[in-house]
Each structure stands twice: as C-alpha cells, then as structure tokens.
Design a binder for these strands. Structure first.
Lengths: 243, 243
DNA sequence: CCATGTGAATATATTCACAGCC
DNA sequence: GGCTGTGAATATATTCACATGG
C-alpha cells in the first residue's frame, strides 16, 4: 500500500543478506533476473491472497492455506516462494506482511506504477473503473482516445485526452505501461505511437498481433480466444457437448 | 463457417482413417483427447489468422507465413498443426479452408456455441458488444444481472435478464459456457447458480478464486494481474524502471 | 527443389518425497 | 510435531535439424 523502502519488516532483520547471497551477492532483494516465467505469472495471485489475509488480521500463513486460497498445490506454492528466497519459518509458515513486501519488490510494484489506457470504449471504461486495482501497485494515470467526441469527458476523475497529448503525458508522469483497448483496426497505429512516446510494455486487448521493436514487451489478452480455449476444454470433456 | 461433417475436403480423401488411426480408431477427426494444452491454447490465434487470409482470397499458406502472422516460430506452428494430423502438402503449404474447418472441429466450434454473460457492468457491456466475436464460433446468447434497474435493458438486441431466469434460459438455448463479469464479491454466488443451472465451463473475470465441482472447468482472466505480470517483465528488463 | 512432418535434444515446469529446522 | 525448502523424478513444451515426399 504505502510505497516505501524494503525497510526490513517487523522482526526479520537483514540476515537475508547472508542467507540469500549465495547466488546473488546483492543484499538488496530476491533474484528477479532468473525467476521462472511460470512462477512470476502466479505471484500476483499470491499477492492478492496475502493482502486479503493481512486485511483480515492474519500475520502468518502456511503453504497449505495459501495454496488453497490461490487455487494451486502447496508444493507448487512452496517452490514458487523458494525462488524469492527462504522467507518461511519451518514448523510455522510465512510472515504475511514480509512476503507481501517481497513480492511487490520482485514485481516492480513497490512504487506505484502509472498506466496509460488507449481506447475508451466499453472495455477501456471497464478498466478505468475497475475495482480490482486496489493494492495492485498500479494506477491508471491517463486515458486516450482518437474520437474527438470523447475527448474531454471525465471518467473516474480523469479526462479523456487526445492521442496528440500522448508524448508529453507519457514523459511527464512518467508512464512505461499502457493498455490498448481500441478496435483491432486501430491497434497497430496506436502501438506505434505508444512506442514512439516511450512506452516499453503494452497490454494488447485488441484481437490482432502487434509488431513492435525487440525492446518493447507485448502481452496479449483476447476475450474471444479465452472463450474459445474454454470451448475446447468443454469439447474435450464432453465430445457430444455441441448439442 | 457452415456446420457440416468432416466430409474429406477437396482432395484429401479418408486416408487419414489409416494414417491417423494408430491411436484413435475413430475416422471422424483429429485427436482431440491428447492434444497438448499449449497447442490448444494457440489454435484460436491460428484460426483467426487463417480466416483473415481466407477473407483476403488466399487458398494456401506456408508455415513460415502463418507463423509470422500469428506471432510464433514456424517450427512451433508446424508441430502444433501436426498434432491435428498431416494436413499440409510438402513443398506447397497448408490448405487454408480445410485447416479452418479442422481447427473449428477440434475446438468444438463447428456448431455455434451459446455463451451466457453474468454481470452487465462496463466489462459485461464490452463483451456483449465485442467486435472480436465474428467467426469465432461463439455467440453471446443471454445477459444476466442482479440489479433490478438493469433488467429489461436491451444491449445489442439482447435483453438483460434476472438471474432467476438463468435455469430455464440455460436449459432452453442450451448454454454450456458462461462468463462472470460481476464484482468479486458476487462472483462465487453467481458461479454456484451457474453450476446449478447446468453450465459446465466458466470464464471468470472477477478478481477472486472460484470454488466449483471437479466436473466444472474454470478459466480465469484478471485484468490487474495481466498488468502486474507486465510490470514484472518491465522491472526485470529495466530494474531502474520504477523511475 | 521446397516446405512439411517429426524424431532427438534441450529447456521449462510440475510433482514427489523427505531431509532439515524451528 | 509440523511445515518449509529442495534435490530427484517426471511431465510438458520448445527448438533443432533433417529425412521425406509432393
């Protein structure tokens, strides 16, 4: 929640500096560089679960309990967390507040990150007003649209801006992440503008493949494809299922 | 597009019956049961690319070309398609129309599948009016919401219905897939109602883990988590990136 | 020739099972 | 006694490189 330094939570002083430095040498934090992809993708869910537990007043949790709440097996959760360092206590479990801080650090969310949103249709509005961003370390910082009729409209206290404003807004905030929620036909042009403005990570909701420079990271979420994958799994389980 | 039987396209007679039956015995289609998960997850993207090419008048495509358009390597694409059967022609490429049909069959989309949508906020509206559903084999068939003020509202030609109507609508269409776009606080209750009504596959957009019976398949899409994963990748590439 | 299809090699991920430590 | 941390075993996925066949 409050963005501040690692600051060695509660009663875990810097003995990590020695325990964990066998691979890093850096006393500052966990090994972000060689964290398995699959593990990294699960950390946000763990983070959410941990924050819920913290809000509910819990101070510690077992791998069994966390795993159940996050919908994974306890072995998987333990291995995932072990990649961050040995932060649990055998016979007891994990210190919730401390783990939250560590995961935030690894995900790069220790300081609030500004996100731009391009394409203020229904999906853009959904993201702009999304209730699930609390405590995520993310903040929707600017809204953009190409349609002159939408420019100036206020959504959740933020004005919809022209794409012409993109360069200076991105530089000013500064913004490194953006989500594209335009129709597919506009997505590539928007991506080009984002890249030019200096955005280095893009979440693409438009149903198309984007071409970007090597240095830019694109992640895709395609609502229709998710349903099609679900359809496949349904079809596999119940081959007659089509009717 | 038109739903019909495998029917041995163009010039590919049933020699698949022998070539491919070493594991199946069924001459009807490709091996849906033991298709790798990762491959299945990519088929929808291939399908979209193939349909675009077909619309553009192409009849055949190489693995190289398809792969570039789908954003994967050609080796991966070839291995993926090989799991469906040997449908390419060496020295030439793949028959687009035939491949489209095969992928639709495998994904269970040969006949249009009806989808229910629960929670008609911004995200629900975005899905209801989504332009990316054309040619996906999916059809948003019913909208539900708990808010009495929304019930009766027409969206894209469909009325928003009370959740009380869920059982009979699900039975009548019939509907096996549903997407939950409610706030997290309502999601589990909605999931329970869906399961009771007979829905067997759920796409959950609410930021929470759902508990459902073994027989029900849940797939999760979490907008905040996707951005957090992106944040991690950004943080890994540019450790100073937080500012 | 040319592009598919595929075994073999490698890389990544998950699961198991238990040693180690509180 | 109980729960973490982790090597070893397994499973899954990707990449390589080339034999195969139109």
């Amino acid at each position: 929640m409050s963005p501040s330094r690692p600051m060695a939570g509660t009663c875990y002083p810097p003995f990590r500096s020695l325990m964990n430095s066998h691979r890093t040498g850096l006393p500052g934090g966990p090994r972000v560089q060689d964290l398995p992809e699959a593990t990294a993708a699960r950390l946000p869910e763990y983070l959410r679960v941990l924050q819920h537990l913290a809000d509910a007043g819990h101070e510690t949790a077992s791998s069994e309990g966390l795993a159940a709440a996050a919908g994974v097996t306890s072995a998987k959760l333990r291995k995932d967390l072990s990649h961050l360092g040995s932060y649990g206590t055998r016979g007891v479990g994990y210190d919730i507040a401390f783990l939250v801080r560590q995961i935030e650090l690894v995900l790069g969310l220790a300081r609030l990150r500004a996100v731009a949103l391009v394409g203020i249709g229904n999906l853009g509005r959904a993201l702009a007003g999304y209730d699930g961003f609390t405590n995520t370390g993310l903040r929707i910082a600017a809204l953009f649209d190409a349609d002159p009729n939408r420019i100036g409209e206020m959504i959740n206290g933020l004005p919809v801006r022209s794409l012409d404003d993109l360069p200076w807004v991105v530089a000013e905030e500064p913004i490194s992440l953006a989500a594209i929620t335009t129709p597919a036909s506009a997505a590539q042009a928007v991506a080009n503008q984002l890249v030019t403005a200096g955005v280095t990570s893009i979440l693409n909701f438009a149903p198309c493949v984007l071409a970007v420079p090597e240095s830019v990271d694109v992640r895709k979420v395609d609502l229709a494809i998710e349903l099609q994958i679900l359809s496949f799994q349904e079809h596999r389980r119940r081959p007659e299922g089509a009717r």
